[in-house]
Amino acid sequence: MQTIDRESAGSARVAIVGGIHGDEPAGVRIVERLAAELSPLDPTDGGGVDGGRNGDDAEPEGLVRLILANEPAIEAETRYTDADLNRAFPGDADSEEYERALAPRLAAELEGFDAVLALHTSHSAPPPFAIFSDLTESVRRTVTGLPVDHVVDASGLRSTTLDSTIPHTVSIEVGRQGSEAAVEFGHEACHAFLRVHDALADEPPTFSETVVVKGSEEVPKGGGEPRVHFANFEAIPEGAVFAEDDVYTHRVEEPGVVPILASERGYDDIFGMYGRVTGAVKPPGEGELRVYPRGDRDERRDSGAGGDDGENGSERSGRSN
């Protein structure tokens, strides 16, 4: 793991993590690009240099921490060496599996931070989107300040990811794995993240309402030729087949279901996940901290996905195999 501390324009302590998965080079390139762009810390302020901090010196009040998480996997250009790091939290420092032992070390590097952004790519189609597990005020600022239209509420899914275990963390899927577009969009998104937390003062931050999609269940894949018929966040009509192969036919029997991370060949065992539009996160200063139900006036921001106007919709869709 490589930790690079850089100067912040404000007092917040924020972090950007790339290389959680070694076969997602966009995050690595974005972190390296930010390290070259941002000013080094002033050593007289107790700041660190590339690769870590200066011994026992106190850290400055505000800083930007850039982390390349899984260096062996990055070097090998593989998702992980022993275990998926984003399925290994909180981890075990004594584990013989590299990633499971790495997880608590990474968590320690992020302890006490005001905001964390974890960079990912996938084989799923655009658009980019964010993911949160706990909607704190910091997460609300991040989500509504990023240039994304959708955020996935993953609170009902796994509890072993970075965003489910490290406070104030948002993950972002910046684009298709291996694409230049993912690098450029992710770099733009990181600048937006730094602005909304006052770490970058080049221009004022921009906030906008963000549609929330509650993740509910993974859609299993069997074998043979996979076929996916709907794109991410596209409403699946009641009775339509979302995906199929020689083993499964996934027919959605309820309205309001949308795909998340839909992909024919991106994953060995799943086509993606089902989700449901449950509301929208409003920018800071526009009411309570909550996921707001969406009314008719919000239809302009809907990508065609159906959903309940209530705050909590049903989480499961029917399907036949």
Rank of each mutant, 00 (worst) to 15 (best):
G175E: 01
P128D: 03
A192W: 14
R290Y: 07
V281N: 03
F233G: 00
T78H: 05
K282G: 05
P293Y: 08
F185L: 04
H191M: 12
E244Y: 07
H197V: 01
D163G: 00
E238P: 09
L68K: 00
R140A: 08
G178Y: 09
A73E: 01
T165I: 12
D45N: 15
V211L: 10
V247I: 10
M1F: 03
Y267K: 11
T142E: 04
E254W: 14
E264S: 06
R195K: 11
F207N: 01
E288P: 11
D134C: 12
V247M: 11
P204D: 01
E109K: 09
V28R: 00
R297I: 11
T206A: 14
A103V: 06
G112D: 13
F207M: 08
G178C: 01
R33G: 08
E184F: 01
A88Q: 06
S133H: 13
T249D: 04
A26M: 05
L261E: 04
S171M: 12
G310W: 12
Q177A: 07
S133V: 09
A26E: 07
V49I: 07
D308H: 12
Q2T: 08
C190W: 00
E59Q: 14
A103T: 02
D50P: 09
E7Q: 10
H197K: 12
F193I: 05
L146N: 06
F233I: 01
S95F: 03
T144N: 11
A83N: 03
E96F: 06
K221F: 05
K214W: 06
N86A: 14
E234L: 03
D246H: 10
R65Y: 09
R65W: 05
E137K: 15
R319W: 14
N86R: 07
S8E: 12
I236L: 15
R294N: 11
D149G: 14
G256Q: 15
A36Q: 13
F113I: 12
S8K: 10
R265K: 15
A305V: 05
D114F: 07
G239T: 10
S320T: 15
E244P: 02
D202R: 02
L34P: 06
A243Q: 07
D308M: 15
I30G: 01
T142I: 12
D84G: 03
V277F: 02
G18V: 00
T144H: 04
D114K: 05
D92S: 08
G19K: 00
G51Y: 07
T169W: 04
I172N: 00
H197E: 04
I236N: 04
G178A: 09
R316P: 05
P284C: 07
A9R: 00
V213L: 10
E24W: 13
D50Q: 14
P237A: 09
E238Q: 15
P25H: 01
P127Y: 04
S155A: 14
L146Y: 04
P147S: 03
S171L: 03
V228E: 08
R13M: 14
L85A: 03
F230D: 12
E184N: 14
G145I: 02
L162R: 02
